[in-house]
Design a protein around this nucleic acid. Structure first.
Lengths: 158, 158
DNA sequence: GATGAAATAGCTACAGA
DNA sequence: TCTGTAGCTATTTCATC
């Protein structure tokens, strides 16, 4: 049913599923859970890091508690979505720390961004920096995230 | 300029900024970087965990390498967005592992979802489970994420 | 918050399958 | 090539100041 996963066996998947939920668990505990020795787990984790299957290991913070209670979604429509014409905007997006996520998408709009902001004034500043002087931007529509029902980037591995 | 952050000083912010980039750095290294002793760092991290400022500590995986190369954005418009009428959908969304993110938003549509899928057939299955028999769903519009320029949930702390 | 001791985790070397 | 055992190193953790 699923495409084959080159080089990953059930042990790797079990380890990954644990780590993407909580990476503070010790290698010994992982070892007990997946029925391997601690060094075996350690070698597999190292391999998964080097091969890039594990992209990052980090802490998720509560923006509300850090003075950034606003989360906004911005849909951007450009005149010309060719790489050369969007290069500048892509670079500004990459360089802007308040942009948490950005996807190029199909459909009505070309870019979808999730932006963290302290206030609406703060947001207008950010939007101005990102899209202000760019004549390739046709329009952008902002929505406020009233509530976050789910967050993260969990990948189902079952 | 920024609202005050109750109970968080510059040391906490420095520690948090390190951890939200990479939580594999040792407390000793953090201590050296922020000019504290390792136990001081340890106590602060523990406090930040208990207070919920640190929401999670986990590994981010590459979905492409795990048989889930598709990421889709779904905008859902409901007839009635009152809690009682959306309760069922919210529960199905929470229970569906393929839904990575879900926000209730203002504007044209009411819900915005990011969904991870192995194939488009897989996605149709998921969408059917989420919205299939729900007569409160007016319409939902799916876009394919052609490219992910930025991911994560980094919170600017400067 | 710092210091130092005890407990724990992570890592390496080696032998066997 | 992979695993497991053993032992070492480094880190985390806790008590005390």
């Amino acid at each position: 049913m699923l495409p084959p996963l080159p080089g990953l066996d059930k042990f790797d998947l079990a380890i990954l599923d644990l780590l993407q939920r909580d990476n503070t668990v010790s290698q010994r505990e992982i070892a007990k859970t997946v029925n391997l020795s601690a060094p075996a787990v350690q070698r597999r984790i190292q391999r998964l890091r080097e091969s890039g299957v594990i992209q990052a290991e980090l802490a998720i913070l509560d923006a509300n508690r850090l003075g950034r209670p606003l989360l906004l979604t911005v849909s951007v429509r450009v005149h010309d979505e060719h790489p050369q014409r969007t290069e500048g905007m892509r670079q500004r997006i990459m360089a802007e720390p308040a942009v948490q996520q950005c996807y190029m998408i199909t459909g009505e709009t070309d870019f979808l961004l999730m932006i963290s902001a302290a206030t609406m004034l703060d947001f207008e500043d950010i939007a101005q920096r990102l899209f202000g002087g760019d004549d390739n931007v046709q329009r952008f529509q902002t929505s406020v995230a009233l509530r976050c029902l789910k967050t993260g980037s969990y990948v189902p591995l079952a």
